[in-house]
């Protein structure tokens, strides 16, 4: 956990642990205000305002879902039009060949199906998941981030990062503990 010699693997970042969501939120805001940008905060449950505090304001999930819904609607309607009006033309009870009202239920279902798949796949892809290896898992106490502890990580790729100064900065935020995370 110390950083005494050069044989150690590269430093991923510094991880500060906090007791409460409010402490984490305050510390994250302080880190952002101090000019750190490659930061992320980790919590066992969503903390309101935390994403904004790390400088992340807008997700594009809803746009992806809208695109999915439109693709699904086009697919569902197009499929039915192709099936009964182009490929396998069949007179059913004298109805028009392009009898659009009866195409609506399937169009609706495919819209919902595509939108949902886009929502999940899009959310995971934008989050960079699945990600089996994460340097943070090397930190011994990081497992508690899914239990009841709150973490702030300042990553070494941040231009303002330098080991001792950043560590002092994190300690000044009343962290419970600050550890170095190695890659």
């Amino acid at each position: 956990m110390n950083h005494e010699n050069g044989n150690e693997p590269a430093v991923y970042g510094l991880l500060a642990e906090f007791d409460t969501p409010d402490q984490l939120l305050a510390a994250t805001r302080a880190a952002y205000d101090a000019g750190f940008r490659k930061i992320d905060a980790y919590s066992p449950l969503p903390v309101h305002g935390l994403a904004e505090a790390v400088g992340f304001h807008k997700t594009r999930v809803s746009l992806v879902v809208l695109i999915g819904a439109l693709c699904g609607a086009a697919f569902g309607y197009g499929l039915q039009y192709f099936m009964v009006a182009l490929s396998y033309v069949h007179n059913v009870g004298g109805r028009p060949i392009h009898s659009w009202p009866s195409f609506i239920p399937v169009t609706f279902e495919t819209s919902v199906l595509f939108a949902s798949i886009f929502a999940v796949v899009g959310m995971l892809a934008m989050n960079g998941l699945p990600k089996p290896y994460n340097a943070l898992f090397n930190a011994p106490r990081f497992g508690l981030a899914s239990d009841d502890r709150f973490f702030l990580c300042i990553e070494s790729r941040d231009p303002k990062f330098e080991l001792d100064g950043t560590r002092e900065f994190l300690e000044s935020l009343n962290a419970y503990e600050v550890t170095v995370v190695h890659d």
Partner: peptide, 24 residues
């Protein structure tokens, strides 16, 4: 899937979950 509870992840996650509820 390598979930860490990152604040960025949570924001997208909550949005996706809410939209799924809206679709369901």
């Amino acid at each position: 899937l390598g979930w860490t509870g990152s604040a960025r992840h949570w924001l997208r996650y909550e949005m996706a979950y809410l939209l799924l509820a809206g679709l369901a």
